[in-house]
């Protein structure tokens, strides 16, 4: 599994280009998240791909060839903070509710919706943690689940900022013969 971060133009169709490229390179995407950045022209993506280092290099370099991608970086080998958010609806009756609440506390999750027969649990954190919670919730009966996909950021002073230099000046291009 490899993690890439990309800064892309915040406009329609870009997600399609990124997904289409991964498909063309025969690289399966495990999760892809996209959201706005502090600069409204730019969106940030975290792409988790089923591939090896070589595949990630090819994906990274190919992504950067797309006109609408400003930067793509394979961050897999860097110190990363990774977060995934999940909403999990579990069946809960009067009897098992206390037991459930205990587990939720251990995992530092929260109950965000309570109904007579079920609870919705919100949990965020590293993928392992969510998978761990899921594991222990399964016996209670997981009715529904939604996960956000992973977002990642390199730690500390290791900055990954989008290039926002003014557009380069382009040499005149013509059809004239060389």
């Amino acid at each position: 599994m490899q993690t890439l971060v990309a800064y892309v133009e915040n406009k329609p169709g870009v997600l399609n280009r990124v997904a289409s490229l991964a498909r063309r390179l025969a690289i399966n995407i495990d999760s892809l998240t996209v959201g706005p950045t502090e600069n409204e022209e730019i969106a940030r993506m975290t792409i988790v791909a089923h591939t090896d280092e070589k595949g990630a290099h090819r994906l990274e370099a190919s992504l950067e060839k797309l006109v609408d991608v400003r930067l793509a970086e394979n961050v897999s080998s860097r110190a990363l903070l990774e977060r995934d958010l999940a909403l999990i609806k579990v069946s809960a009756d009067q009897q098992n509710r206390p037991h459930l609440m205990e587990l939720i506390k251990v995992f530092r999750a929260r109950v965000v919706d309570v109904a007579p027969e079920s609870l919705i649990i919100e949990v965020s954190g590293a993928v392992d943690k969510i998978d761990g919670l899921l594991e222990v919730l399964r016996p209670f009966g997981v009715l529904e689940m939604a996960r956000s996909g992973r977002i990642s950021m390199t730690r500390g002073g290791d900055l990954l900022r989008p290039p926002i230099a003014p557009p380069e000046s382009f040499e005149a291009v013509t059809t004239e013969s060389k």
Binding site: R70, P163, P166, E168, F170
Partner: peptide
């Protein structure tokens, strides 16, 4: 109407 392409990281 000069070209205005998104800036790229210079590698």
């Amino acid at each position: 109407s000069a070209p205005k392409l998104p800036p790229k990281r210079q590698r």
